[in-house]
Structure formats: C-alpha cells, structure tokens
Amino acid sequence: MEHVIEEKATSLTFSDVVKGRLGGKTMTLCYQCGTCASSCPVAKITPRFNPREIIKLSLLGEKDEVISGDAIWLCCSCYNCQERCPQKVEIADVIYALRNIALKEGYIPNIYSEFASALLNDGRIVKVSRFVENKRPTIGLPPLQPTGVDALRKILSATGFDKLQQKKEGVS
C-alpha cells in the first residue's frame, strides 16, 4: 500500500513538473486515443518512437524511463500529431519540455551539446567558415555580418544556460 502511495506521489510530481514548463501544460488533457501515433511519420518507420506511449509514461510518472531513453529525441518536430490531436494536447511541445528536463538531469545527445558549444563560441550553430567568408564576395554575396557573440554570451549567462553547458561538459 505504501508503495502505491509513493508511486502516486511520484507521478503527480513528474506530471506537475512537465505541466509547469512552457509547452508542457496541455499534457494531462490526453485520453490516449492514439491519433498522434497514427499521424507520426517516425512511428511508421520505427517502433522505438510512439508519441502516445511517451505521453502515457509521463502521465504515469515514469520519469526515468522517459528522460533516459532515446525515444524523446526521435521526434522530428513535424507537428502532425499536434495539429490532429482532438484534445489539443501540444504533443511536440510537450516533448520539447521533456527534452529540457532530460538535459537538466544530464541526458542530452551530443548534437545538441555541439549546437550549444557553437553558439557560445560563434553565436551560430553552423561553424563559421573562413573559406566561405572569403568566397562570398567573389560570388556576388555581401560579406557576413558579425554574429553579436559578445552580447549573446551575456544573455546566455543571464539565462544560466552557460552553466548547464559546463555541467554537461563536466559530465562527459
């Protein structure tokens, strides 16, 4: 009995955490009809991704399974599910919220970590290329403007993101 109560308490907490995040607030409207899964181009290809399942596990409070697995990273953010959901659950945005939680707990695929590093270095996610910069004027394109990276660093520092990034780098 105690176990059940404990589980219930956990589930409430995780659901509330997701609901409290931007994009996460509609999650509890889900009644598990599966319109999302049948609209999902990724779910058609691989059984490793099923948006209905991700929402179900999140509602049940299975935080570890949700944030440590690779499923949440396989959403292609096409928003088909979100457009078609009869309950107006913002599914793709809920998945973004889950990814943000995963990052806080130290789970993040390398690519996002690379994006974040590039941002902190250059202000853009594609590595600034001297070769292309030199080429642009020769093919009639204006030179690239400065990235404003100093200003950006100040903002990233204010949002606390630079610390998260350092934490991740420390972990890996």
Binding site: G23, Y96, L103, A116, Q145, P146, T147, G148, V149, T159
Partner: peptide, 19 residues
C-alpha cells in the same frame, strides 16, 4: 542586411526552451 543577428533559437529548443 541584418547586422549582428544570432541563431534563431530553434536548434537549441530541445536543450533549453528559455534560451
């Protein structure tokens, strides 16, 4: 020309919505 622009933000949304 947009002087001084930075990444729109989308690629880092999975990492931090706030950022």
């Amino acid at each position: 020309e947009m002087s001084d622009f930075n990444c729109c933000g989308l690629p880092v949304d999975p990492a931090s919505h706030e950022m």
